[in-house]
């Protein structure tokens, strides 16, 4: 095994986005989906275009700067080396933890206030089940 083998690791997030244009296309597709949902909900073309511009613009900026900035490279899904890969994994773990805390807090708060808590419950459930599933999966892979 060489120092560069991390690039070919099965658990690497590298390769999630194959290239610059793929990243831009994914950003535009996601923005388009959000814009379409916004348009269906509100009937506002302006709001839909803003959704496309925000998500597509974010992807465009990452695609343009990923070769100049290691941080942009990580955000684009292409960490430049094993340390940035570790930073990416730590950031994902932190984001997952914050998501779990927010969804559980929202679930409890909505229940106490007598509001519909199903949205928070669904997100909390997905986070919890995917965490358990990931532990079981990576138990065999790592």
């Amino acid at each position: 095994m060489t120092s560069m083998d991390w690039e070919r690791s099965n658990v690497s997030t590298k390769g999630l986005f194959g290239g610059r244009w793929w990243l831009i296309l994914v950003g535009l597709a996601l923005g388009g989906l959000l814009g379409l949902a916004d348009f269906i909900a509100t009937g506002s073309t302006g709001r839909a275009l803003i959704d496309v511009a925000i998500v597509g613009g974010y992807a465009l900026i990452l695609a343009l700067f990923r070769s100049r900035s290691e941080t942009a490279s990580v955000l684009a899904g292409l960490p430049v080396d094993e340390r940035w890969e570790a930073i990416n994994l730590h950031a994902l773990a932190a984001a997952g933890l914050i998501g779990a805390i927010v969804s559980l807090t929202g679930l409890v708060a909505a229940e106490v206030a007598g509001h519909d808590a199903s949205g928070f419950g669904m997100v909390a459930g997905v986070i919890g089940i995917s965490y358990i599933g990931s532990v079981i999966w990576f138990r065999w892979r790592l």
Binding site: M1, T2, S3, M4, D5, W6, E70, V80, D81, E82, R83, W84, A86
Partner: peptide
């Protein structure tokens, strides 16, 4: 030479990052 970022070398030298066994 090692195909890592300059910041990674700095982090290793300052003890902030422990490299993988292959690195």
């Amino acid at each position: 030479h090692l195909r890592v970022s300059r910041q990674t070398i700095n982090a290793i030298e300052t003890g902030k990052y422990l490299p993988s066994l292959p690195l």
